[in-house]
Amino acid sequence: MSEILSNSINPAFFSILWKGTWETLYMVLVSGIMAVMIGLPLGLWLFATQHKNLSENPLINKLLSATIDVTRSLPFIILLIAIIPFTRWVIGTTIGTTAAIVPLTIAAIPFMARVAENALLDINPGLIEAGMSFGARPMQILLKILLPESLPALINGITLMLISLIGYSAMAGAVGGGGLGTVAINYGYQRFDITIMLATVAILIIIVHLIQYLGNRLSRTLNHQ
């Protein structure tokens, strides 16, 4: 048994997994950060445009909301293919980890926007009134009151988003995006290399748990409720 295993172990076993892991982390982190940078302001905007005391604007709110829902309802694998021309235009190519970041980011933005909106909706509306009562402007209420108050919930939402991104990144990997998804397809599926297959699964499980653990911890530290 051990002979079979050791015989079948790919000589580049570690370097293949190492590279795949880094690529996965790179894709997930970069698209995660971009999604927060774009999705969070969108979420704040979504919240502000539906609130009579911030900057109510039903038209913008409806448009924004509809766009987000449409993007969210697309299955990721369809999105991945549908935006190929866009990806090529932005990155210059459609394969590789950097190219995978485009669809990953686009999938995560609406998720992040809803996460942010919900986090703000959960805050006691009395805080907005308190802010208004001591002369805070709408922008100050958003950034200095609502954002810090929603931080624990935002962290939980971001954790969830990163974990979904890991799943999506594997899908992107399956169609040439790189990372552990590509490793699993190229070695595990096409060459029937069970060891590599199992190793990618193990690594993915570890990454997911680690992100969940760190997210929970951070959220708990920031929560003073």
């Binding site: 009395g126 001591f134 810090p148 003073h224």
Partner: peptide
């Protein structure tokens, strides 16, 4: 907003920021 700075208000449910300490809550305005 400027005029409201001279009109303080207190609330039944206090409406304090849970993410800020006592000092920081008072300092916020």
């Amino acid at each position: 907003a400027q005029a409201r700075k001279k009109i303080g208000m207190i609330f039944q449910q206090f409406n304090l920021l849970s993410s800020r300490t006592v000092y920081e809550n008072i300092a916020l305005p």
